[in-house]
Computed example of a mutant assay.
Amino acid sequence: MYSIAYVVPYFGKFPKGFQFWLMSCGCNPSIDWLIFTDDRTDYDYPDNVKVTYWTFDQMRTRVQSIFDFPISLERPYKLCDYKPAYGEIFERELRGYDFWGDCDIDLVWGDIRKFYTDEVLENYEKVGFNGHSMLFRNTPQVCSRYRTCVEGALSYRDVFSVDQGFAFDETGMDAIYEALGIPVYKEIDFANLLKYDYGFYLDWQDEEDREKNEAQVFTWSHGVVTRHYLYKGRIETKEYLYLHYWCRPTSFRIHEYDPNRQYLIYPDVTTDKPFHMDEELIRRKSKRSKVKYYAKSIWFNRHKITLERIVFNVKGMLGYKNGC
């Protein structure tokens, strides 16, 4: 079995769903998570989640140490652009692992090994294409791949020198791997929820599957993420690698974090309240009030709504690129 470690630098207070995320990590005992944070809250950390308490200044110093030019790392959010460099930045901590990865914490893991099998890891050096979860083979060549300069695409030196977000971990790395002709594992085995839809609507679906979004909820049980949806008059199910909340204003109404309990996940709530899965529950829970949902979403994301984010999103939609 290939060994895997996810690297998760996070500065500031962890979000409300963090303990739920930790529980799902603990249900994947053959994988490690290396967290670097300044949040010393007394969470129930599983054995495979290893915490190092750093200040953001220590993080900035570590990043600067591997580059021969002045970097820009003024805010924790800028770390998104540095994700492809984690293999070099955390080279000491990652020694002995076959693969290292980066991931978000606004998600809940399912059974990772069921999807990231040894066969997949044997055939790809890069697994995943979205910033919420990617794996890279832990070799010097792969860890330095982000330094490749591709004409007409983002350059790591330009990205790391400016106090601005570029989504280099996604668009930048996509351009590099495409230019080099290196295959990337791009299966849609995750459930990515649209953050601006008041119901549950999955992104990254084939056109013929979109009608399956009409009524659906999710469950997390014994380390498995399952989608329950209505399709042609019957209840269908599908298992996923993980469910990505993606900044949705979710309330975690959880009384006990226990891997043996079953949790229900619907548009803006995750709960351990007992339930019976049937058509009536799916229809009732799959939609929320538009007004209430959007009001809650604006309040939940109020600190993230900035001119820079708006400009960045617009540029991303227009296919903005920076030269090498």
Score class of each variant (00 low, 15 high):
151 E>K: 15
271 T>D: 12
188 I>K: 13
242 Y>F: 12
275 F>L: 09
183 P>S: 07
35 I>C: 15
46 P>D: 01
176 I>W: 01
23 M>Q: 12
169 D>P: 03
198 Y>A: 10
159 V>E: 07
270 T>A: 14
119 E>A: 15
94 L>K: 03
283 R>D: 08
153 A>F: 06
76 P>I: 09
47 D>L: 13
227 R>H: 01
130 N>F: 09
164 Q>Y: 13
115 F>Y: 14
29 P>L: 13
291 V>S: 11
293 Y>H: 07
178 E>I: 00
112 I>T: 10
140 P>H: 08
164 Q>T: 09
20 F>N: 03
153 A>Y: 08
247 C>H: 14
223 G>S: 03
240 Y>R: 01
65 S>H: 06
222 H>R: 15
224 V>M: 03
24 S>P: 01
217 V>A: 04
18 F>H: 14
164 Q>C: 10
187 E>S: 11
70 P>Q: 14
130 N>Y: 06
14 F>G: 06
262 Q>H: 04
185 Y>L: 03
320 Y>H: 12
297 S>R: 12
171 T>L: 14
219 T>N: 08
144 S>L: 04
314 V>G: 02
219 T>I: 01
217 V>P: 04
211 E>I: 08
316 G>D: 11
187 E>H: 09
122 E>I: 05
176 I>E: 00
81 D>C: 05
262 Q>F: 00
186 K>W: 00
201 Y>G: 02
24 S>N: 01
237 T>K: 12
98 D>V: 08
324 C>W: 04
43 Y>D: 07
176 I>F: 03
84 P>M: 07
164 Q>E: 14
31 I>T: 09
252 F>T: 09
107 L>T: 03
311 V>R: 12
253 R>G: 11
244 H>W: 10
263 Y>S: 00
204 W>A: 13
122 E>M: 13
190 F>I: 05
218 F>R: 04
101 G>Q: 02
38 D>M: 08
244 H>G: 00
266 Y>P: 00
103 C>R: 07
303 H>A: 14
157 R>M: 12
47 D>E: 14
299 W>V: 10
22 L>T: 06
181 G>T: 04
178 E>V: 01
291 V>E: 09
40 R>S: 15
71 I>Y: 05
226 T>D: 06
206 D>Y: 05
111 D>T: 10
309 R>T: 12
227 R>W: 00
127 V>K: 07
192 N>T: 01
266 Y>K: 03
139 T>R: 05
171 T>P: 02
17 G>T: 04
58 Q>K: 15
159 V>F: 10
78 K>P: 00
39 D>S: 10
147 R>W: 01
78 K>V: 15
206 D>E: 13
229 Y>A: 04
107 L>C: 08
83 K>N: 11
214 E>K: 15
239 E>Y: 02
293 Y>S: 02
256 E>F: 02
144 S>K: 12
288 R>N: 10
20 F>K: 03
55 T>V: 06
64 Q>E: 09
245 Y>R: 04
179 A>T: 07
243 L>E: 02
299 W>C: 10
184 V>N: 02
207 E>R: 05
267 P>C: 07
66 I>F: 13
245 Y>F: 15
270 T>P: 00
210 R>A: 05
42 D>I: 09
195 K>L: 08
219 T>C: 05
280 E>P: 01
198 Y>G: 01
268 D>F: 06
15 P>F: 02
246 W>Y: 14
81 D>P: 06
192 N>C: 07
